[in-house]
């Protein structure tokens, strides 16, 4: 028997690997991967149909493919991994071992994130090859293209998925149905993508003839603070137009994603500690 910190570390690694392996062999992962590769492949054809801005089009299509694959992984593989544990009681297999429920939540989340990180690495390599190929064919259009800005946009997308998966884990702990988790997660994603624009629109003086009541204003303010602002992670436009994304901005969104995820996971742990696993 091992003891102390070393044992704790090995235990957590074993749980992360368990979640990762279960996810990596999920058929939905293959589907998501193939779909994204097809999208990237289609970029080769689509780009040839444009007369100008080929760099922007190819960057946009590739980043969209990566983002879409990430969302598919989150909404199908991650939710399935969490829901299956509770629906089919595979969770007993973990919790019958000396794991606390908080450790289970963190181990599961990190396993899912490892899976998404690996998938992202593969997709980024495929994307880079696609862009390289298009670049070699249409060198003239790629004068302002920047690899660094492209990878910064990919990184921001990864940060979004860190946060979105924490949302999935959070909803998995408070609901008993994978459908409800899916519904809440997609709603959070859509609200998170649009909340900033909606708030700006509603609060602009020209938006409506009548001013908003105080209670509506308060609700908007609360929603703005509670819902994650996911639009800050969308850097496709900047990357496509080779607009420099500052490292300060990257640091800010990294902190935002981490802090928000940690808060969600701590809340999930608290809720899950009280949950009955019948």
């Amino acid at each position: 028997m091992l003891s102390g910190e070393n044992n704790m570390y090995r235990k957590m690694i074993s749980l992360i690997i368990l979640s990762f392996k279960e996810g990596v062999r999920d058929r939905a992962l293959i589907g998501a991967g193939l779909f994204s590769l097809m999208m990237m492949g289609s970029a080769l054809v689509v780009v040839s149909m444009f007369m100008r801005d080929l760099d922007k089009v190819s960057v946009d299509i590739n980043l969209s493919a990566i983002a879409f694959a990430g969302l598919l992984l989150t909404f199908f593989v991650s939710i399935n991994l969490m829901a299956k544990d509770i629906d089919k009681h595979t969770i007993y297999c973990v919790l019958s071992k000396p794991f606390s429920r908080s450790q289970y939540i963190w181990g599961k989340y990190l396993g899912i994130m490892l899976l998404i990180f690996m998938a992202f690495c593969i997709l980024t390599i495929c994307s880079s090859i696609t862009i390289l190929f298009i670049k070699s064919q249409y060198e003239f259009y790629f004068k302002s293209f920047s690899w660094i800005e492209f990878y910064k946009a990919v990184y921001a997308q990864l940060l979004l998925l860190f946060l979105l998966n924490a949302v999935v884990v959070f909803f998995s702990t408070i609901t008993t149905s994978s459908f409800i988790t899916l519904l809440f997660s997609i709603s959070t994603y859509l609200a998170g993508q649009t909340i900033e624009e909606v708030v700006v629109f509603l609060k602009s003086k020209n938006a409506m003839d009548m001013p908003l009541s105080e209670s509506i204003n308060a609700i908007i303010d609360i929603a703005q603070y509670i819902l994650p602002n996911l639009s800050v992670f969308d850097l496709k436009v900047q990357s496509a137009h080779a607009i420099t994304i500052s490292y300060n901005y990257l640091f800010a969104i990294t902190s935002y994603s981490l802090i928000y995820s940690v808060i969600l996971l701590l809340s999930a742990s608290l809720i899950f500690n009280r949950r009955e696993l019948k």
Binding site: S14, L18, K21
Partner: peptide, 22 residues
């Protein structure tokens, strides 16, 4: 019992033994 069905029995037991500190 319903286990992680994408794992092999050997992988499942490796998890069980590592989690139990062997």
């Amino acid at each position: 019992p319903y286990f992680y069905d994408n794992l092999s029995a050997e992988e499942l037991l490796k998890f069980s033994s590592t989690a139990s500190g062997l």
